[in-house]
Design a binder for these strands. Structure first.
Lengths: 170, 170
DNA sequence: GTCCTAAGTAGGAATCATTCCTATTTTCCC
DNA sequence: GGGAAAATAGGAATGATTCCTACTTAGGAC
């Protein structure tokens, strides 16, 4: 499965446990196994794959629990997603080279331009993986609009919420 | 709608028409309007939003046509998607800073590391859009595995197919 | 160690974006 | 203008993800 060295994983499991504790979230067998599955390798499994693996150790686990746990781990910053979670596809008609600032709170994506970034040297490590066609930088963070709302109202928890994809404005 | 200057759009419409012609694909009112909608602005609309806008000019258009057209335009390289089209969410448990090589054919995403890329200077243009939390480089292209298959069998059309998300191996 | 209660879970039903199916229209080459 | 191939509309189907509700468990208080 592209396994991560034992000791590195052990360290991450410890970090995982203390993060749950700090967040006041219960440590359950299910959460442990889901995290181990994602953190234990270098691949990028989908929820179904994780579900199947976890079920080998906890046969009664449900797919819903796997999803709930994954979003929890994401909120806690313990794992990340590839691409934008829980979003319908969006299209980009900008033909000029550009990059994206993606808001992890509301999902908004703004274009920005940068001479330097567009001239990036692609390292051999990437070049060896296939035929490169395009390179884009994705900057993630909280967009100005969300910062403003957060500042105005109660200043939030400091931990970003997961965009639901349903709060799309127009 | 974040409108693009008229003359720039006109140039893109011409390019659109000749691209369809070159690909031996028929020019229909629906395709014209869908393309205009995506290429005409700087935002990143989803299919539903495009559907609603196009329906104002072509009331009988169907959502399916909008989707079919968008994937066609994507295949022709006339537009792009934000994130990875037609994929279930995938999770990334890699805690170290890393970047991704994403195969536009099969959807596979491989990690790679790069000291230089991890030290990227984020331009002011991006910094001004919000509070930056993380920066990742996404290299897109055809992965080694797909290149091999393509080379073995008939060498393909040269135009990348859209991953369906259903051909996931395991 | 036992008890209590909030938090977590299972499982099935519900949602919703996207795709498929099929009969009907259009485009474009002659 | 006429016909074959390609596109479209519309509704039904699919499949990932989420919601609902009754049942279980973790973990702090005793």
């Amino acid at each position: 499965m592209d396994a991560r060295p034992e000791e590195a994983l052990q360290k991450r499991m410890d970090h995982f446990k203390s993060a749950l504790l700090r967040a006041g979230v219960k440590l359950t067998r299910q959460r442990l196994e889901v995290f181990r599955e994602v953190a234990g390798g270098y691949d990028h499994p989908d929820a179904e794959t994780i579900y199947r693996s976890v079920r080998e150790r906890v046969p009664s686990v449900s797919l819903d629990t796997v999803y709930r746990t994954l979003w929890l781990l994401l909120d806690l910053g313990l794992i990340a997603t590839l691409g934008h979670p829980r979003e319908r596809v969006r299209f980009d008609g900008n033909a000029e080279p550009h990059h994206h600032f993606v808001c992890t709170r509301c999902g908004r994506a703004d274009d920005f331009h940068s001479e330097e970034l567009s001239r990036l040297v692609i390292p051999d490590a990437a070049r060896g993986l296939g035929r490169v066609e395009k390179t884009q930088v994705e900057v993630r963070g909280i967009c100005a609009r969300c910062l403003r709302e957060e500042g105005g109202a109660a200043a939030g928890t400091g931990r970003p919420g997961r965009p639901t994809g349903r709060e799309r404005s127009r």
